[in-house]
Design a protein around this nucleic acid. Structure first.
Lengths: 119, 119
DNA sequence: CATTCATATGAATATCTGTTCATATGTTAT
DNA sequence: ATAACATATGAACAGATATTCATATGAATG
């Protein structure tokens, strides 16, 4: 048994070259972690609904809260998470703060996922 | 103030036609919920790592557990979740059960997300 | 048929996460 | 400056979730 082989199921199902290939082609741990973190942000129906609203037009916190029938604080907390992930951006106009999607990428990811769900 | 208008921020930021447009173009609640559920599955680094392993080749539970240095039970639980979401499929070969990606869609979603992360 | 090995599953637990409540910050107008 | 309004934020709580442990199921082999 060569170094790098994986002993498994009391047999050697996976040979050294395959293990090497898998290990080499696996992205770094950090990237996989970040990727999971990104999906986690999409993985909440409140945030998904916010994103779909913003797909239509920019909105202030109060607009979103009313359209989703939720309280202002909850929306504000979620917007903070969305902003930290750079999925939305905001601009202040007087007392209001208007949120919009950060870039086209968000729309792409959403439609991609929607395709899968609609299958 | 017409029916359908949203009173907001003590002003009428959103007019009836905009509200109507947003409401009409919003996907159904059920779909948004399902979409969030889908992303939730991708939103865990153990499951992400499993998916990236399976991108390379099909593997039995034991292979995966060893490659990820986790115990068999944990992997089995996660594979169950992945299978319920139809992201992976499996086949039995003797005592082993081999898992693989359910379809090309999974790969597309993964690479899509990875693009965003790598920006 | 009993044993061994691979996988699945239920219960328990510790951790994480979303919402609410109370309150702070920041802006406008009187 | 003070009042009124929009938003942000911290603490607390309830509900969800990933992992572990113990054990069950299922298949091959002597």
């Amino acid at each position: 048994m060569a170094i790098g082989d994986v002993e498994c199921c009391d047999l050697y199902h996976v040979h050294e070259d395959v293990v090497q290939a898998v290990r080499e082609r696996m992205p770094e741990e950090d990237k996989l972690y970040d990727l999971a973190e990104l999906y986690k942000v999409f993985g909440d129906s409140t945030r998904i609904r916010i994103l779909f609203l913003l797909l239509e037009s920019e909105m202030c916190v109060c607009d979103i809260a009313q359209l989703l029938d939720m309280n202002q604080s909850a929306i504000s907390h979620q917007l903070r998470i969305l902003k930290q992930s750079r999925l939305v951006k905001n601009r202040r106009e007087g007392k209001s703060v208007f949120y919009s999607l950060a870039d086209d990428h968000v729309q792409t990811i959403l439609s991609q996922g929607m395709e899968h769900v609609e299958e």
